[in-house]
């Protein structure tokens, strides 16, 4: 029997940060739906992660039952916490002005951390701990 293969793509958070929100989710799901496990040195914001789940549900079919996600966010303390809060406020203000102008604000940056997103047909189990996670995949 021919051994099956799994492809891992390690993508920098800077690459994902460059993309507007909708394109970022599209980029992730296109890779994962093709069977790739994506790993990045960043964490999606909760609002974006729930959008990822929503978009995944729209794409579920017989060959793609969905995704498994595991992430570890670097605890935001001291200066990092301040910087993240300021960045959030800046994005909220930009989003507000974009909304007033009838536009959609699409630029958000990821948080510091680690994320793995893979196809549920390969990833059978994710065990999360506060400071680590392990992933069991099967082909």
């Amino acid at each position: 029997m021919k051994p099956q293969k799994i492809k891992f793509d390690f993508v920098s958070s800077a690459t994902l940060d460059e993309k507007p929100k909708s394109l970022r989710i599209n980029f992730i799901l296109n890779k994962v739906k093709n069977g790739t496990i994506l790993v990045t040195d960043g964490v999606l914001k909760p609002e974006e992660e729930i959008d990822l789940i929503k978009e995944t549900m729209r794409r579920v079919d017989d060959g793609f039952p969905g995704i498994e996600v595991a992430s570890l966010k670097k605890p935001a303390k001291g200066m990092l916490n301040f910087v993240e809060k300021m960045a959030d406020q800046k994005e909220k203000i930009q989003s507000l002005f974009a909304g007033l102008a009838g536009q959609t604000f699409e630029k958000t940056s990821m948080r510091t951390g680690l994320t793995l997103i893979g196809p549920a047909r390969f990833i059978k189990k994710v065990k999360k701990n506060p400071n680590s996670f392990s992933v069991l995949a099967e082909v």
Binding site: K45, P46, E47, E49, I50, I53, E68, V69, A70, S71, V126, K128, N129, P130
Partner: peptide
């Protein structure tokens, strides 16, 4: 309880 769904839900 430490599942990504729970973490994402509470974060949202």
């Amino acid at each position: 309880p430490l599942t990504q769904v729970n973490v994402t839900l509470l974060g949202n």
